[in-house]
């Protein structure tokens, strides 16, 4: 039987606002598959976003959805998770939203190891505002604000997140939806802060300026450069530049999760108060 997406979608909100062929649709589809695979009841999920094309995704998902201010999704998500540690909190965000204006929240949520999954749809550009370069625009690529080619080196988001202390870090890509939902399921299952970068296409704003205006060309450009982590590591240094690794890049199951640590404190203090009352 064909997979039923309807329990997770607000179908009355369709058609969506994205350009035909945009990678965000692939990400949302993979997310729904992963929600289902993880056995998450949509009523127990909150999906939080910031501002940008990717951040419009929550509007189409039939769960608790919070479309916040630019870059700040993780801070709102942190408040929700602290108050309701028993629920599933997912942040979906674009590269500009998550790693430029929201970069500080990203690294600190990772450091705390709070049980939130952050999915970053990395299409290397600010799509909604008209194609300005982002922290992940490749050096030399063209953008509305980089008419002579981008002068700035770009972030490797997975390395950034590993450095910040995320206990689950993975990368997928829009050319492989099945792999994407498998990685998402792993991220959802992980207890602690999990991060998934999705290398994705914005053919409208990035592709058009970089000789890949057709979405299929751009997805092929992404797909052809993706190599499973193990294979990527076997590549010679000179070849590595032409590819990027996909898969689970980092997993640490030993670090305590933040809301559990906090609950242990609440329990300990309650115990102490009880003992103090009994001693009186």
């Amino acid at each position: 039987m064909a997979f039923d997406y309807t329990p997770y979608l607000r179908q009355e909100k369709m058609p969506h606002m994205w350009c035909p062929g945009c990678g965000i649709g692939i990400v949302v589809k993979a997310m729904i598959r992963a929600f289902s695979d993880a056995n998450w009841d949509p009523r127990d999920i909150a999906v939080v976003s910031g501002i940008g094309c990717t951040s419009r995704a929550p509007g189409y998902l039939n769960m608790n959805t919070l479309h916040t201010t630019h870059g700040r999704a993780i801070s709102f998500a942190t408040g929700i998770k602290m108050h309701r540690p028993d629920k599933h909190i997912v942040v979906i965000s674009g590269d500009g939203d998550a790693s430029a204006i929201g970069g500080n929240h990203l690294i600190h949520a990772a450091r705390r190891n709070i049980d939130i999954t952050v999915i970053v749809n990395n299409n290397n550009i600010y799509g909604m505002t008209g194609g300005q370069y982002s922290p992940t625009t490749p050096l030399g690529a063209r953008a509305a604000t980089a008419p002579y080619g981008n002068l700035e080196p770009s972030f490797d988001l997975t390395k950034l997140l590993i450095g910040a202390g995320a206990t689950f870090v993975a990368r997928g890509q829009a050319g492989n939806g099945r792999q994407l939902s498998t990685l998402m399921k792993k991220a959802f299952d992980h207890k602690g802060f999990s991060f998934l970068e999705v290398v994705s296409n914005c053919h409208t704003q990035f592709g058009r300026r970089n000789k890949m205006a057709d979405p299929m060309n751009m997805i092929a450009w992404i797909n052809d450069r993706a190599k499973p982590l193990k294979k990527y590591e076997e590549l010679g240094e000179s070849q590595k530049d032409q590819y990027f690794p996909v898969g689970v890049m980092h997993e640490d199951l030993d670090r305590p999760e933040y809301t559990e640590t906090y609950q242990a404190l609440i329990d300990k203090l309650a115990e102490q108060q009880k003992e103090a009352a009994a001693a009186k």
Binding site: A46, R72, I74, S75, F76, G79, H83, R84, H105, H108
Partner: peptide, 18 residues
């Protein structure tokens, strides 16, 4: 939180969760 902005964000998020 990591900054003032995040502090305010967390407060609104927690409020929406009750």
């Amino acid at each position: 939180m990591e900054d003032e902005i995040a502090a305010m964000g967390s407060v609104v998020g927690a409020s929406l969760a009750g």
